[in-house]
Write a protein that binds this DNA or RNA. Structure first.
Length: 448
RNA sequence: GCCGGGGUAGGGUAGUUGGACAUCCUUUGGGACUGUGGAUCCCAUGACCCGGGUUCGAAUCCCGGCUCCGGCCCCA
């Protein structure tokens, strides 16, 4: 038995690695052009970083371990928390806004399936310091452009948590988890029954999450006004009751820090409306969709997700929104907008026609090995294509055969005759035609 | 954690009413062919996922595990 790779991990063969590199480069070039600078954070962090952000229960899905000093560590399961940790540690006094991007492997202890692995790669960006519609529009447009740059067409859904959050405050805390679950699972019938049962069917929750598209915004604004009137009638304590415990009843205590982190005016849809308008100017098509709930925990208002077809059950390729995390991590509170792209899922559906440069083979007879090595060295300095040299002690014929099988574009043939003349034989591997040229001429011929 | 379907050389496969050195193609290395590749031929390397059980005998039947694929749960 040979040693197998760990479950849920993958090996990337040269062809795979090449494709991944091309797509990664395209995306990172675009990020740079939008002014987002690359950063990197450690592969492992203190476990606490992730439990602060997401609750103790996520330890179940984390590669967590104790190091030799007895510290609780974790292989990073995502990159937003590490990036914000870095921000709090090192960048709080940097000029705002900060535009950052990252690419890195993440780890989750989950059952592998299509588009889901235990080691996977995330590419993302964070715009730190603003939650204005301007910032949100930029980030969302950027996310969509990145996906397009990979040749993938994504379906962008844009949501706003303010309305749902307000409605949730108007129903008894004990009922919130069930209601949230039904929304998340798209269980309309059960949701309707539940709302009726608790006398909350007048809030318009179902109508809200069913709103989709451009006209959704206008209707949502009307609903917001109705809600504003309703909430005025509630005692302040009731309105202020946090939503966070309600969302994750299985976690006790450790989430209290996140109560009432909603945007100042949850019902102010003008902000959201402005964002929708800006996105139109960016030329980004978005479907307004109030059904996106995406962790009410630290997202403050705007949230978005991008889906792609051809991926089976795991069809979400990007998720993001505006959040407040710096405070949780011990820094001064700052609003940020960001997203993460599931790089592996992109790779599953990307269609690439780009191919690696065909190599040039230096083919020689044993007596002139030194000259061949020198020639290869010079060619490597002068041309872009890979230059390869026989290391198997093969004869000339076998070397050409090898050159052919690796798809070489040209062979530079070197023997005593060539060395004497100071000219090598350049053979076009596709046509078989040959010319006698100096090394300099060969370099020029094969170009940069 | 749950449900279903799979695991035979590096890749693709044949063989499952239990029976002798496990089939074929491809790949890889060598040779025919040490100054000219793609063809052909020859040789070589290379596998029954792991562990138990049943049996005179297991790739084949049974059990457990591992793992891959699809789905559920979850998805920060």
């Amino acid at each position: 038995m040979t040693i197998q790779r760990p479950r849920g991990t993958r090996d990337f063969l040269p062809e795979d690695s090449f494709k991944r590199g091309v797509v990664r480069k395209r995306m990172q070039d675009l990020l740079e052009r939008w002014g987002y600078q690359e950063i990197s954070t450690p592969t492992f962090e203190h476990l606490e970083l992730f439990t602060i952000k997401s609750g103790a229960s996520i330890t179940e899905e984390i590669y967590a371990f104790k190091d030799k000093g007895g510290r609780d560590m974790a292989l990073r399961p995502e990159l937003t928390a590490p990036v914000m940790r870095m921000y709090v540690n090192e960048l709080q006094t940097a000029a705002k806004p900060l535009r950052l991007h990252y690419f890195g492997n993440c780890f989750r202890y989950e059952r592998p399936q299509k588009g889901r692995f235990r080691e996977f790669w995330q590419l993302g960006a964070e715009l730190i310091g603003s939650d204005r519609p301007d910032a949100e529009a930029e980030v969302i447009a950027l996310a969509q452009k990145l996906i397009e740059s990979a040749g993938v067409s994504g379906d962008l859904h844009l949501g706003y948590l303010g309305l749902i959050r307000t409605m949730m405050k108007m129903i008894p805390a004990s009922e919130r988890p069930a209601v949230m679950k039904f929304i998340d699972k798209k269980e309309r019938t059960l949701l309707a029954e539940k709302l009726q049962e608790i006398g909350a069917d007048h809030l318009g929750l179902i109508e809200l999450i069913d709103l989709k598209g451009r006209q959704a915004l206008d209707r949502a604004m009307e609903m917001a006004e109705d809600l504003a009137r309703l909430s005025e009638n509630l005692p302040p304590d009731e309105v202020l009751a946090g939503t966070s415990e309600a969302v994750s009843p299985d976690v006790t205590g450790d989430r209290s820090a996140r109560s009432d982190r909603a945007a100042p005016s949850d019902l102010d849809l003008a902000h959201f409306s402005e964002l929708v308008g800006l996105l139109e100017i960016y030329g980004v098509e978005a479907t307004v969709d109030f059904e996106i709930v995406r962790g009410l925990e630290y997202y403050t208002g705007t949230v978005f997700e991008i889906y792609a077809s051809g991926l089976g059950a795991q069809n979400q390729i990007c998720g993001g929104g505006t959040y407040m995390l710096a405070g949780l991590l011990g820094g001064q509170e700052t609003r940020s907008t960001g997203f993460g792209i599931g790089f592996d899922r992109i790779m599953e559906i990307v269609a690439l026609d780009e191919k690696p440069l065909a190599p040039v083979a230096v083919v020689f007879v044993p007596q002139v090995r030194s000259e061949a090595v020198r020639a290869a060295k010079e060619l490597r300095d002068g041309i872009a294509a890979p230059v390869v040299l026989d290391v198997m002690g093969r004869g000339l014929g076998a070397q050409l055969k090898q050159a052919s099988s690796i798809g070489a574009s040209f062979a530079v043939i070197i023997g005593p005759k060539e060395v004497e003349e100071g000219k090598f034989t350049l053979r076009d591997m596709s046509t078989g035609s040959q010319e006698s040229l100096t090394l300099k001429e060969i370099r020029e011929r094969l170009g940069e």
